[in-house]
Write a protein that binds this DNA or RNA. Sequence first.
DNA 1: GGTAAGATCAGC
DNA 2: CTGATCTTACCA
Length: 198
Amino acid sequence: MVTVSADLVARDPRLVGPDLLGLVLRQGTRAGRIIEVEAYCGTEDPAAHTYRGRTVRNSTMYGRAGLLYVYRSYGLHWCANVVCGVEGEGVAVLLRALRPLEGIEEMRVARGLGRRATAPPLTDRDLCRGPGRLTQALGIGGQHDGADLLAADRDVHLLDDGWRPESIEQGTRVGISVATDRPWRWWVAGSPWTSRPG
DNA sequence: GGTAAGATCAGC
DNA sequence: CTGATCTTACCA
């Protein structure tokens, strides 16, 4: 397990996105492998939070590459992004699904909070499949917005254990209503851990 | 000042 | 399909 270099993320998010597949996101004792991502491309991307300029919420997305941009989605869920490009550009890659690797019991507890007693038991596939689910599973929230993912001594960081996908598939992004034609979503081909069937 | 629309998810 | 619930944009 080694940390990820700044060179990997200090590029166009459409290049960084597929290169993040296979890397490990760790938060405390919980970790998962990145299976599915989407690129958000700043002023040229109407679906990006930074398309209309800086706000209180999106300021981290303008920071230097390798920071974690965490925002609240629909007032309820947290979504985690890896800031890319150069400082001030406002581009990032959204993490959409992980394969759980470590701390799976902790993830199960975190994901079970607030569920009805009658709800069916959570399978491993239910833990990190979707951007809101993976942050809940790892315990990532607003307090991690702006964290440095490239420093191994931090609570939350990116690691490379050498694993690489055999092949990668590409398609359009999920859950947006503008710029729906841009093929800026990538996932590990054939993986059962994606947020929706490939 | 009010309102609508989200980079979502769970439950019916 | 709907409701939950926070942030922002846009209009009055």
